[in-house]
Design a protein around this nucleic acid. Structure first.
Length: 595
RNA sequence: GGUUCGCUAGCUCAACUGGAUAGAGCAACUGCCUUCUAAGCAGUAGGUUCCAGGUUCGAGUCCUGGGCGAAUCACCA
């Protein structure tokens, strides 16, 4: 039983005895005591005042006296207005600590028997990944790790947008201007090569539209009649008809893109358990439209198009099938949702997609509900905010897109520069140094993108490179390295710190704080899983590292005279390192043993 | 125009879901390396939490109105 649970029960008992009033343990919430006051747990008594018919400060005072007298784990208390601050006895903290060191990594949360599918990344195959994708991928991967730590069975999937008019645009430009260029012949990474032709299409198309307008055509008409556009549409039809030449070109070019993506995914450290391709799923959903018509959830208009009315859910009417029987984006997603459920029978299905698609997912979920799909209630849109530049949104047309590969390389260069400046890699082999630069670069980048609440949009300033000091990934990585160094020294000295610590020791403030923080880990994981927020973990890892550094600066370890205390501090350090490592692992960040 | 979301220190972000004197980091200033890694620690300074009302013991957080910003509202995906 946790300390706060023990306190809860004690308070229930106290209320019964002192105030003759039955409270349920759920009504009693402790919050961590603020730094400026003495104690570890605080009970706010204002809310109990009415039921107990007593003034808040009197309640706090009487409960405090009772707890101190009757509850051995309560060492002392103080009352400030209606706040009861409780000081826990050191022996209790040490017992807690001995218990913690015996439980597994990641907080030791048991499996909950539930399955969750996490879809993330979901790139288009017509251009390389950019900064926005980095936030998506890091978020998706991290939330999958967090859900797994929280007890779920997790399946990570990537739904690749590999077909459609935008893909045909780069195919067409390549066909016209490519001259047989390949990633091998040009030395350009596959996804970047395709991106180049996507841009080329846009240039040629604009040129053509401009000249048509010059010839006196209306703008809108010119945009529709430009041969580039017509040819791209023609190509899409050929692709859908399975015309071999087009399909060949398509699979060759997509193959190049996948090679490029794989390389970037590997650098990012993200993985997938399963891929879905829109070229396989784009025709799905039509049978569900029939189902909806039968259930009279959908209706047909005179031109044969099929619609759903969502006005009762504060949404509008939505088209599901065109008059000619072809489907639209949402139709496909309805079908894919069904396919996902058939494949995995999930309890929850998470879509990691930017908040620009809030409306789309609101509609999708509303439709699944109307169809009374059993899985509808488990669907969740993890809607994250855009990454803005100081100039505003990234725009590919204005060339302000921050390319993922470039950014990663820049981060590695920065890491190298800072590391060299500090002489941190003296004595490292070249390979070891390169590995450290990479680890720190990705640590800095991932932490930067994950520490912010996913829902909020965030700012990235390419002019100011990402920090390595303060509230950053490398700061936490550094703390881990420091501790590793201590553990290496302990090993050299053949000190065995595995055994339980003696409960007779007197603890200092920082030690109590550290034990309390480590104890919170499993609770933090559950909170992060519940909120779908890696930022909760990031904040926790920072708090823990910060507190450890304070401890490290103020108290000696190997120079400590008392044997028991010295061994205890090494063991405490080891537990902090383990917890930092686990929490950073949940963010997809590796922590080095030296830096 | 409708809907949704956001607005907290000069800048980037927190605030345990209604609790104490709103906290961190960066930038600025002051100390601390002859002892376990100074990518660190301690300190100073910095706030009308966009504005105005309301709800109550208590509001950055909840309700109403307003301001500013973003996204979205396609027979595009």
């Amino acid at each position: 039983m946790s300390i706060s649970q023990q306190l809860q029960q004690a308070v229930v008992k106290a209320c019964k005895e002192i105030f003759k009033h039955e409270l349920s343990a759920d009504d009693i919430h402790f919050q961590p005591t603020r730094k400026d006051f003495e104690g570890s747990f605080t009970l706010v008594t204002f809310g109990m005042s009415k039921a107990l018919r007593t003034r808040p400060d009197a309640i706090a005072e009487q409960l405090g006296v009772y707890l101190k007298e009757n509850e051995p784990i309560v060492e002392d208390f103080n009352v400030v207005k209606g706040f009861l601050n409780i000081v826990i006895a050191d022996f209790q903290w040490i017992e807690q600590f001995n218990h913690l060191s015996s439980i597994a990594d990641r907080g030791g949360i048991p499996k909950n028997g539930k399955k969750v599918m996490v879809e993330y990344s979901s790139p288009n195959t017509n251009k390389p990944l950019h900064l926005g994708h980095l936030r998506n991928n890091f978020l998706g991967y991290s939330i999958a790790e967090i859900l797994e730590a929280a007890g779920y069975e997790v399946l990570k999937v990537n739904l690749v947008n590999d077909r459609g008019i935008h893909i045909c645009k780069s195919m067409l430009a390549y066909q016209k201007f490519g001259n047989g260029e390949t990633p091998q012949s040009s030395g350009i990474k596959g996804d970047h090569l395709i991106g180049k032709y996507y841009v080329r299409f846009d240039q040629e198309y604009k040129k053509e539209v401009a000249s048509l307008i010059e010839q006196g055509l209306e703008k809108e008409f010119a945009e529709k009649q430009a041969s580039m556009m017509l040819e791209a549409q023609e190509m899409l039809k050929k692709w859908e008809a399975g015309e071999p030449e087009t399909v060949n070109l398509w699979s060759t070019m997509n193959g190049w893109v996948y090679e490029g993506f794989d390389e970037t995914y590997k650098k990012m450290g993200v993985t997938f358990d399963k891929y879905y391709y829109e070229s396989d799923t784009y025709l799905l959903g039509k049978d569900i439209v029939d189902e909806g018509l039968e259930k009279q959830v959908f209706y047909k208009k005179a031109d044969g198009s099929v619609w759903v009315d969502l006005k009762d859910k504060n949404l509008d009417e939505k088209l599901l099938l065109r008059g000619d029987g072809t489907s639209v984006y949402i139709t496909q997603d309805i079908g894919t949702a069904e396919l996902k459920y058939q494949d995995f029978a999930f309890d929850k299905s998470v879509y990691v997609v930017g908040n620009e698609q809030d409306y789309h997912f609101a509609v999708l979920f509303a439709i699944c509900e109307k169809l009374q799909k059993s899985y509808a209630s488990g669907m969740y849109h993890l809607s994250y905010g855009m990454v803005d530049l100081p100039s505003g949104r990234m725009k590919s047309r204005e060339g302000t897109v921050v390319d993922a590969d470039d950014l990663i390389q820049e981060m590695i260069n920065t890491a190298k520069a800072k590391t060299d400046e500090l002489g941190k890699t003296d004595g490292f082999s070249q390979e070891q140094a390169a590995e450290l630069h990479y680890t720190l670069a990705m640590g800095a980048l991932k932490y930067f993108l994950l520490r912010v609440d996913p829902k909020k949009r965030m700012l990235f300033n390419p002019e100011e490179s990402i920090e390595f000091q303060g509230n950053t990934g490398p700061f936490i990585q550094y703390t881990h390295s420091r501790i590793s160094s201590i553990l290496r020294k302990a090993e050299q000295l053949s000190l065995d710190y595995q055994a339980d610590s003696s409960t007779h020791m007197k603890l200092n403030k920082e030690e109590v704080e550290l034990i309390q923080l480590i104890s919170k880990f499993s609770q933090v994981i559950l909170e992060a899983a519940n909120d779908f927020s890696p930022a909760v973990i990031a904040q926790y890892a920072f708090d823990l590292a910060k507190e450890y550094n304070r401890f490290y600066a103020e108290h000696p370890i190997f120079n400590e005279k008392d044997d028991e205390t010295r061994i205890f501090r090494i063991k405490l350090s080891a537990e902090v390192a383990r917890t930092i490592k686990s929490s950073m692992r949940l963010l997809g960040i590796i922590v080095p043993d030296r830096m």
